[in-house]
């Protein structure tokens, strides 16, 4: 992977000027490369990684992982039905999976009722959906490589040879 991406994936706020210094390149070249990545869709967007357990407001969200069994369609396989599912705003992630079911759909809702009514009234009623199994998420420990804990104190002694 290009080191520019490695740096940005770790901290998207790193400026092109700083990346240029780290990689001994010209800031202009770094900016152009980043533009290119954005245009090609390699970099989709920049966002903060939140620990939502610490966000205390009425908007706190409940998450569920839903296994979905599907009857594939002629010519388009799973793609068409997947599109119908992931287009719902309640769906935050959607993956095609090998194994005993087909789609893994991550749904976010205000509470257990909003999530279950989405499953019962929208998802399950779709023509090609054969069945669903819903798992409510109880606690998040690690997400996308980030461990969701308070920053640990520095354990190194401040000065050593």
């Amino acid at each position: 992977m290009d080191e520019i991406l490695e740096v940005l994936e770790k901290d998207a706020r790193t400026s092109a000027e700083d990346i240029a210094k780290m990689l001994k390149k010209k800031p202009k070249d770094i900016k152009e490369k980043i533009k290119k990545y954005e245009k090609e869709g390699v970099i989709l967007r920049y966002k903060a990684v939140l620990n939502k357990d610490l966000v205390h407001d009425e908007d706190s969200r409940l998450r569920a992982l839903i296994e979905v069994n599907i009857v594939p369609q002629k010519d388009v396989g799973f793609d068409k039905i997947a599109e119908r599912i992931y287009s719902f705003p309640e769906v935050s992630s959607c993956y095609l999976i090998s194994g005993s079911y087909d789609l893994l759909v991550v749904v976010e809702g205000k509470n257990i009722h909003t999530v279950s009514s989405f499953v019962a009234e929208k998802l399950s009623c779709l023509e090609n959906v054969r069945g669903t199994t819903t798992h409510f998420l109880l606690k998040k420990y690690k997400e996308d490589g980030v461990i969701l804990k308070h920053k640990e104190e520095n354990k190194r002694i401040a000065i050593s040879y």
């Binding site: 190194r156 002694i157 401040a158 000065i159 050593s160 040879y161």
Partner: peptide, 20 residues
């Protein structure tokens, strides 16, 4: 000098001889 560093708070240390 080392003792002075260890006794101070909010210091950014570039004096560490081990990986971070």
């Amino acid at each position: 000098f080392f003792d002075l560093v260890l006794g101070m708070k909010d210091v950014i240390s570039l004096g560490v001889g081990e990986p971070d």
